[in-house]
């Protein structure tokens, strides 16, 4: 296959970037998208040019490292697929492909196609802990969890934190990510004691990071490689409303006994 690539090149966070066109003359349809970029980079290195920087790790669709806006769609045209699992047979010989980094104020570009997603880590940190009693291990299954609830919690827990939801959203909103993280603990009995506080703190952190607001257009759900449902966004809205309106207010200082 012969392809023409338009790739975003940007030296570092401070410099201006621009689209640069590259020819990829020897692409096998069996390659993954990242392998195709590897081959293009080999050529660039041989020519003494700077290779295209992109993020990757497991290359089996479970780590959440790879990203890329491919022809305007996060993770490319195949549904429920990360960029590393996207194969070149999805494209046709002679195609032109636009490759851009995730674009959001909360995801500043580090270099070329690599963005800093530590805003997501800070949202998770804001979620805090779950109370687990110390002492001997409990017997298995002594906390009954209905199958349907366990399934839903697992669906939410599938989120790999890749950031495609933010990239696809016209408002660069992180509601799908945050709601998946709020919900996978909030659905289970172990997550109940801190449920309200978790929703409040994670939403607050999400707003602080400078992500946009959800306008319920569901572009995020359409591109999510793990098919996280926008149902979790409604669930987070419910948890947040409940915690704000019916909750006990700001967290009191830790430590038992009377003040």
């Amino acid at each position: 296959m012969k392809l023409k690539l338009h790739v975003w090149r940007q030296k570092n966070a401070k410099t201006q970037g621009k689209m640069v066109t590259y020819d990829a003359p020897n692409v096998s349809p069996h390659m993954s998208f990242l392998e195709m970029l590897d081959v293009v980079n080999e050529d660039l290195i041989a020519k003494g040019e700077e290779p295209i920087a992109f993020e990757h790790d497991c290359r089996e669709g479970i780590c959440g490292s790879c990203s890329l806006m491919i022809n305007g769609v996060a993770h490319g045209p195949q549904k429920a697929t990360t960029t590393c699992q996207l194969h070149m047979r999805t494209f046709k010989d002679g195609d032109e492909i636009y490759i851009e980094p995730w674009r959001a104020k909360a995801f500043p570009i580090i270099k070329d196609l690599v963005v800093d997603r530590s805003a997501f880590d800070r949202i998770i940190q804001a979620g805090g802990y779950v109370s687990v009693n110390a002492g001997g291990a409990q017997d298995a299954n002594c906390l009954p969890v209905p199958k349907d609830t366990a399934d839903q919690a697992m669906d939410a827990a599938q989120c790999i934190g890749c950031g495609a939801c933010v990239a696809a959203c016209k408002n660069a909103s992180a509601m799908l990510f945050t709601s998946a993280k709020v919900s996978h603990l909030g659905l289970l009995p172990q997550g109940q004691p801190e449920r309200q506080r978790r929703a409040l703190n994670m939403v607050q952190q999400m707003d602080k990071e400078g992500f946009g607001n959800c306008t319920n257009q569901y572009e995020c759900e359409a591109v999510c490689p793990k098919e996280i449902s926008v149902r979790f966004i409604a669930r987070m809205n419910r948890d947040y409303l409940n915690a704000s309106i019916c909750g006990s207010g700001p967290e009191k200082k830790a430590g038992g006994g009377e003040d």
């Binding site: 338009h6 975003w8 689209m19 806006m69 022809n71 305007g72 769609v73 636009y98 851009e100 674009r103 959001a104 104020k105 909360a106 696809a168 016209k170 408002n171 660069a172 909103s173 400078g210 992500f211 946009g212 257009q217 569901y218 572009e219 759900e221 359409a222 591109v223």
Partner: peptide, 15 residues
Amino acid sequence: DARPVAYVKKTYTKA
């Protein structure tokens, strides 16, 4: 404000 730099190419899938 949340997306200061626009995409060169953006395709909508569900909106």
